[in-house]
Computed example of a mutant assay.
Amino acid sequence: MFKFLKDVNREMQKVSWPKGNELTKYTIIVILTVLAISVFFTVVDLGITQILEWL
């Protein structure tokens, strides 16, 4: 188990963590993408509901 934890620690040191500016930019991109997809699916859902009501 200790060997595993040492290996994990060694691998985590190789990870390239984003800087503050990058993290902010990526967070904004993710939030905007989620909002855009939510709006898209809301419009599609409303459209399908309207079509089914007409039938």
Rank of each mutant, 00 (worst) to 15 (best):
Phe2Leu: 12
Val34Gln: 07
Pro18Lys: 10
Val8Glu: 02
Lys25Leu: 11
Thr42Val: 07
Ile37Cys: 03
Glu53Leu: 03
Val43Pro: 00
Phe4Arg: 08
Lys14Arg: 15
Thr27Tyr: 02
Phe2Met: 09
Ala36Met: 05
Ile37Arg: 03
Ile31Gln: 07
Phe4Ala: 10
Leu55Phe: 13
Thr49Ala: 13
Phe2Glu: 10
Thr49Gln: 14
Val44Phe: 14
Met12Glu: 04
Gly20Arg: 13
Thr42Pro: 00
Ser16Asn: 13
Leu55Asp: 06
Ala36Leu: 09
Gly20Asn: 15
Leu32Trp: 14
Thr49Tyr: 15
Ile37Thr: 06
Gln50Tyr: 13
Lys6Glu: 09
Asn9His: 10
Phe4Leu: 13
Ile51Arg: 05
Leu52Ile: 10
Ile51Ala: 13
Val30Ser: 12
Ile48Gln: 06
Gly47Glu: 12
Ile31Glu: 10
Glu22Asp: 07
Val15Leu: 13
Ser16Arg: 15
Glu11Cys: 05
Thr33Val: 07
Ile48Lys: 09
Tyr26Ser: 15
Ile48Glu: 06
Glu22Ile: 05
Ala36Tyr: 03
Ile51Lys: 04
Leu35Trp: 01
Gly20Val: 02
Gly20Ser: 14
Gly47Ile: 04
Val15His: 03
Val44Pro: 01
Gln50Leu: 09
Glu11Asp: 07
Val30Leu: 15
Ile48Asp: 00
Gln13Ile: 08
Asp45Leu: 14
Lys19Ile: 01
Ile48Thr: 02
Thr24Ile: 15
Asp45Asn: 11
Ile28Ala: 04
Leu55Met: 12
Glu53Pro: 00
Leu46Met: 09
Lys25Val: 11
Leu35Glu: 01
Leu5Tyr: 08
Phe41Asn: 02
Leu55Thr: 06
Thr49Phe: 15
Thr42Gln: 04
Leu35Asp: 01
Val34Tyr: 01
Lys19Thr: 12
Ile28Arg: 00
Asn21Cys: 01
Ser16Phe: 11
Ser38Glu: 01
Asp7Glu: 11
Lys6Met: 14
Leu55Ala: 04
Trp54Thr: 02
Val44Gly: 11
Val15Cys: 06
Val43Asp: 00
Lys6Thr: 06
Leu46Asp: 05
Val15Asn: 03
Asn21Glu: 10
Val39Ala: 14
Val34Asp: 02
Ile48Met: 02
Val43Thr: 03
Val39Gln: 11
Leu46Lys: 05
Gln13Arg: 07
Leu35Ile: 06
Val15Met: 09
Lys19Glu: 10
Val44Asn: 06
Ile29Lys: 03
Gln13Asp: 14
Lys14Leu: 14
Tyr26Arg: 14
Ile51Thr: 08
Lys14Tyr: 13
Asp7Phe: 02
Ile51Tyr: 12
Gln13His: 07
Trp54Val: 02
Lys3Ile: 06
Val34Thr: 11
Leu5Ile: 06
Trp17Val: 15
Ile28Lys: 11
Ser38Gly: 04
Ile28Gly: 01
Phe4Ile: 11
Phe2Asn: 08
Val43His: 02
Val15Glu: 02
Val30Asn: 10
Ser16Asp: 14
Thr42Cys: 08
Phe41Cys: 00
Leu23Thr: 07
Phe41Val: 04
Thr27Ser: 13
Ile51Glu: 12
Tyr26Leu: 15
Phe2Lys: 04
Val30Ala: 12
Thr42Arg: 02
Lys25Cys: 06
Asn9Val: 07
Asn9Ser: 14
Val39Trp: 03
